[in-house]
Nucleic acid binder design. Structure first.
Length: 643
RNA sequence: GCGCCUGUAGCUCAGCUGGAUAGAGCAACUGGCUUCGAACCAGUAGGCCGGGGGUUCGAAUCCCUCCGGGCGCACCA
């Protein structure tokens, strides 16, 4: 409701300003610092003051006199040096909120969001959790605003990391294919590979000659033949299954898994290579350190034309680098490659949703993916250099529009707090101990595994639930504890803005008090309980609550403020999307919960004697409940039945 | 050296892309459970928004500069 009023006001004021002054300005609506100033504030006079070279206050006064009446606004007044404060028609606002008036969703083309992208060679860790939760929440925000979204999780199943685990099994552990297959079918295969990967990595540092095994393995994988290639497939497929399972625990699902193996087999790169050469986006270096390589000139992606900065796309031995493959993949996402994958059903989620993976054999699955109009790549900020190169590639090919619509949805890494490192027995240098956070290495097998963290959170939540609800069955308690734990985790990962490094600390992550997911859940449960415990059937609000009733009840300033708070969700989603910041969404949900909690303490709904007021309070409670649940849905947090 | 990010309460962070008296949570202190469940609430205390210049009606926010911290800058992904 709030959002639709906002859009009415901005468009009417903008139209007036355009006609009256011949100036086109974006009209901004702010929330006054003090509620006594009114519900909305327009700083438009300040914006106009620059162009008109007149005092803001005079312009504001003039605007108020000349602006035609706006539906829903009862009063306008000049305040401060030139603010225009608006007071709303409370009863009309409430009536519209009751009717569920919303802004029509905008329809644009398909948006592709790529996230998670974990190397399929070891268990997921907390850094991957941030990526997936950020990506998944952004997807939910986009969908809540009416966009069509496709979620992709890219699988690099032919890379060095997978090869290293294969080297570990084959050369170090001397395992047969059958043995590896058996291990892959057993639980916690991702944990086993986590350790094996670390062991192989450290083996290389002492035995440089072993790097030859890696080269052989990579070669075999690329050729797609022999025992080593088969091992790679077993490992990668089994680990992908582990990752999907971990992500499903968090409510994160995907539409399609484009895999690097098909990018290779279906000659995506060859096609892109032709185009890059044809349009002179890359050139063959005739001399210098990159002699014999196809390179993208530095000037295309950096503010330098230094030859040393040129990026190699095709190595002197003719093989393509990661960036090259990524350019091909990015082109496919926009439907620019003139090629598509085949697809096969990878698996079906418990709710019936189907997940497809790319395939190189023609199948009858009639599914089409890719060819989006806008692409968000959720990748941590350490890869911004490579993302810049990919975008520069599109630009060099002449795809300027697509380059502009390729968005690196970057975020900072998840490091560990020194305290948590100590808990995990990670050796720290004296220098590290002084830092606020320490970056840990997956290659060394250090870090916090995603499933371990989730297990620990569930354990914690279980303790609380068990203590409060001895009467419930163990299964019900476990279910509630799981929902609370996941809510806590998702909120924790979301409450930091993208540019903030998370110094992961067990104590903080395991906290269920204050600005946390459980706080929001608790408020929602309370709203639900009031409605549940109200004896008779809930009244039919739409017929009982008339404009008269609203204008009587809304003379209470606090109640009016609660209505405003409980009708802002759509506006909040919109703003968070514009800012590209899921953290704003999380914060809004928290503030909404705070607002309801205040209402909860200020008004006794069930014991209210005045019948008319009670119906009104019930409706307000219901309004809070539905908005809180929707907000949690956007955050991907599921409700426990009790807590 | 070049590029990107960053410095706000004791700690962890917001601050809606220039607006009114800079906000939360944690920790600390004082209170509140026979109430729609205290995973909560009310209150107290805590800030030269890293320093200095500039832009203007107005700066935590934009520009310059200095200081401090992080991350990138492979024929690895």
């Amino acid at each position: 409701m709030y959002q639709s009023l906002e859009s009415t006001i901005t468009s009417e004021v903008a139209a007036h300003v355009h006609i009256r002054y011949g100036i086109t300005l974006p009209v901004v609506i702010e929330q006054p610092k003090q509620s006594s100033f009114g519900e909305m504030a327009l700083p438009i006079a300040f914006q106009l003051a620059k162009e008109l070279r007149r005092a803001p206050k005079a312009i504001a006064t003039e605007l108020i006199e000349e602006l035609p009446a706006i539906d829903g606004v009862s009063k306008m007044e000049v305040a401060g040096n030139g603010y225009i404060n608006l007071r709303l028609n409370r009863a009309a606002y409430a009536i519209n909120a009751l009717a569920g008036i919303t802004v029509a969703a905008q329809t644009s083309g398909k948006i592709i969001v790529e996230h998670t992208n974990i190397n399929p060679n070891k268990a997921a860790h907390i850094g991957h959790l941030r990526n997936a939760i950020l990506g998944d929440t952004f997807v939910r925000m986009l969908r809540a605003a009416g966009n069509q979204v496709e979620v992709q999780n890219y699988i690099d199943n032919t890379g060095v990391q997978v090869a290293d685990v294969v080297v570990g099994f084959h050369y170090l552990e001397k395992k047969s294919t059958a043995e590896v297959k058996a291990l892959a079918a057993a639980p916690r295969f991702d944990y086993l590979c986590w350790d094996l990967y670390a062991r192989t990595s450290s083996y290389y540092t002492d035995h440089k000659e072993a790097l030859d095994w890696r080269a052989q393995t990579l070669h075999a994988i690329e050729a797609g033949e022999g025992e080593l290639a088969e091992l790679a497939t077993i490992v990668a497929d089994a680990i992908v299954a582990c990752h999907l399972k971990t992500m499903l625990r968090l409510g994160v699902v995907y539409d399609v898994l484009p895999r690097e193996s098909e990018i290779l087999h279906l000659q995506f790169w060859a096609k892109a290579f032709e185009l890059l050469k044809e349009r002179k986006a890359i050139e063959l270096a005739a001399e210098g350190k990159n002699k014999g390589c196809w390179v993208m000139r530095a000037e295309a992606f950096a503010s330098s034309d230094d030859e040393d900065m040129d990026k190699v796309i095709v190595r002197s031995n003719g093989t393509v680098t990661y960036v090259g493959k990524d350019i091909a993949y990015q082109m496919w996402k926009f439907g620019l490659l003139g090629k598509d994958f085949f697809y096969r059903l990878w698996h079906t989620y418990p709710d019936g949703k189907q997940l497809f993976a790319s395939s190189d054999v023609p199948a009858d699955a009639n599914h089409k993916f890719g060819a989006g109009s806008k692409v968000f790549n959720v990748i941590d900020s350490r890869q911004s250099y490579l993302q810049d190169v990919v975008v520069a590639g599109l630009k060099a090919l002449g795809f300027n529009e697509q380059a502009a619509n390729s968005i690196h949805f970057s975020y900072e890494m998840v490091a560990l707090s020194p305290r948590t490192c100590v808990e995990l027995d990670i050796d720290l240098s004296d220098e590290d101990k002084k830092r606020p956070y320490v970056e840990v290495s997956g290659r060394k097998g250090l870090g916090v595994k995603a499933d371990d963290l989730i297990d620990k959170l569930i354990e914690n939540a279980s303790r609380e639930v068990d203590a409060r609800h001895a009467d419930k069955s163990e299964a019900d308690r476990k279910k509630a504890a799981t929902a609370i734990a996941i809510g806590a985790l998702r909120y924790f990962m979301l409450k930091y803005t993208r540019t903030s490094v998370i110094a992961f600390d067990f104590q903080e992550a395991l906290s269920f008090e204050g600005e946390t997911g459980p706080y929001v859940l608790y408020a929602t449960i309370r709203s639900r309980n009031i409605l549940k415990k109200y004896g008779p059937e809930l009244p039919d609000f739409k017929s009982v609550l008339t404009a008269d009733v609203f204008s009587r009840q809304l003379q209470d300033e606090d109640l009016w403020q609660y209505i405003l708070a409980a009708t802002r969700l759509d506006s909040a989603i919109d703003k968070a999307l514009t800012a590209g910041e899921p953290a704003h969404m999380a914060r809004f949900a928290f503030q909404l919960a705070q607002s309801f909690t205040n209402f909860y303490h200020g008004y006794q709904v069930l014991s209210e004697q005045d019948k008319e007021k009670q119906v009104f309070l019930l409706w307000l409670t219901e309004q809070f409940r539905s908005q809180l649940e929707r907000a949690l849905g956007v955050l991907g947090v599921e409700m426990p039945d009790f807590m």
